[in-house]
Each structure stands twice: as C-alpha cells, then as structure tokens.
C-alpha cells in the first residue's frame, strides 16, 4: 500500500502539486487523468523519488522513501516511456537486467510469450516500432515483479488489440495483489480498468471511484467546464 501525505512540489515558484494526500491500496488500479502539462509525470516522478518530496511524505508498505530508499524503490517500478530504453541493447538484455536488479524470480520466456514478443525479443530496441517498445516496457514492469507499478501513458502507439491485451494484463496484476497507478489519456480504457480515477486539476487531486460513469463526460466536466448531459 502506498500512502502519501501532504505532498508538495514546485519548479521554482511554479507550484505543480499542492498538499496531495492519498492512499493506493494493494490489488487496485488507479487511473491518473489530466491534460498535458498538468503534472501527471511530475507526480509519478515524485512518487519514486526522482523529484524531491521530503521525508515522511511517502511510505510504501510502511517503508519511508527518505529513510530506506533502496527498500522503497525495490517495491516499485517506473520508467517514464519507451524512449528511455537502451537503444543498443535487445529486449531480452533489458529483461535480464531488470530481473537481476529487482531480484525477481519471474520467468522471462513466460512473460515474453504472454506479451506475444517471441518474434522480436532478441532484437535491439532501436529496430523496434513504438508498439513493440511499449510491449518491451510493459514486460519490464512484469519482470520486475514490484508491488507498485507507476505507468505513464502505456497505451500510446498501441493498436486496439494490444490495448485490450494491456488491459487484460493490468487486470491480472491487480488480481495478483499489485498496485497500479496508470496515467492515460484514453478515457474509455481508464473506465474499463480503473477502480478509482485521480483527476489532477489546479495542483490537487479530485478522486472518484469508478462506478461505471462516463469518464469522458467526467473529463469534460472537470477540465473543460462542460455540463453533464442528462
């Protein structure tokens, strides 16, 4: 369980996150939604310590980021996007590396097969399409086997089949007790997979439980000021 209390962050005088407090329980998927440039990625960076937040703000299963950084990071996985993969290395190089660095016991070939990557897991990242890279990145999340997965716009560049495949995998991870925080602009997908949705607006979070409401309409209401249709 990730517990965040009074998280503040600013770039210079520009406040990005203002006094955020929330909890992400085990076995849940939380959607993170906001227009571009609002602070979604900044929030994810803060949650994994890439940007400073201060002590006693974030604990993951009771472990404080600032007191036990290594133990904290050992329980999460976050890589912002597939452009940050190592272009000269193969997919399997990345997976082997992640497995060792996170001391994971996940079987690589099972993961590769489950994501349909048998045809290209020995190829270098630079030779892959965006969709293939997104698969490689998701495979790294699965191989790390971390409790908390911070996933930033994972559906970019994916075809509808792959989107469904990713959603299925998210659901499987949730069923396995993992905690997922997934930022996305695909409101229909957010509606399908999320238990809760965080709308990030005016430097703070508006949390909504997913009760089957029209998420696109919610987005329009919150960010575009549109009236909900009866």
């Amino acid at each position: 369980m990730l517990k965040v209390q009074h998280l503040n962050f600013a770039f210079g005088h520009q406040v990005i996150l203002n006094d955020l407090s929330f909890t992400l329980p085990d076995g849940s998927i939380t959607g993170l939604v906001a227009p571009n440039g609002t602070g979604k990625t900044t929030l994810l960076r803060c949650l994994c310590g890439l940007l400073p937040s201060g002590p006693k703000v974030m604990t993951l299963n009771g472990i404080d980021l600032y007191q036990k950084r290594k133990a904290y990071l050992g329980q999460l996985f976050f890589l912002e996007n597939s452009n940050q993969l190592y272009a000269d290395l193969t997919v399997i190089d990345h997976l082997k590396y992640v497995r060792k660095m996170w001391h994971s016991g996940v079987d690589l070939h099972t993961t590769i097969a489950s994501l349909g990557m048998n045809g290209y897991y020995k190829k270098r990242i630079r030779d892959l399409s965006l969709g293939m890279k997104q698969h490689a990145l998701l495979a790294m999340y699965l191989v790390a086997d971390a409790q908390l997965m911070l996933i930033d716009e994972p559906l970019n560049g994916l075809d509808p089949t792959s989107i469904r495949q990713f959603e299925r995998i998210f659901a499987e991870q949730k069923a396995a007790g993992k905690t997922l925080l997934v930022s996305s602009h695909q409101m229909d997908s957010v509606a399908r997979v999320s238990d809760n949705v965080f709308f990030l607006k005016d430097q703070t979070i508006l949390a909504e439980a997913n009760t089957g409401q029209d998420m696109m309409a919610e987005y329009g209401r919150i960010f575009l000021g549109e009236e909900a249709h009866a």
Binding site: C48, G49, L50, K70, A71, Y72, L73, G74, Q75, F77, F78, L79, E80, N83, Q84, L85, Y86, A87, M101, W102
Partner: peptide, 14 residues
C-alpha cells in the same frame, strides 16, 4: 546523450 538516465536513477541500489 541518449536521454536514458531515468532507469538508472530508479534502481533499488545505492
């Protein structure tokens, strides 16, 4: 140069 610092900064190691 390759803009690939992120993973390295997130590793659960010193």
């Amino acid at each position: 140069r390759q803009h690939t610092e992120a993973l390295r900064q997130n590793l659960p190691h010193g």
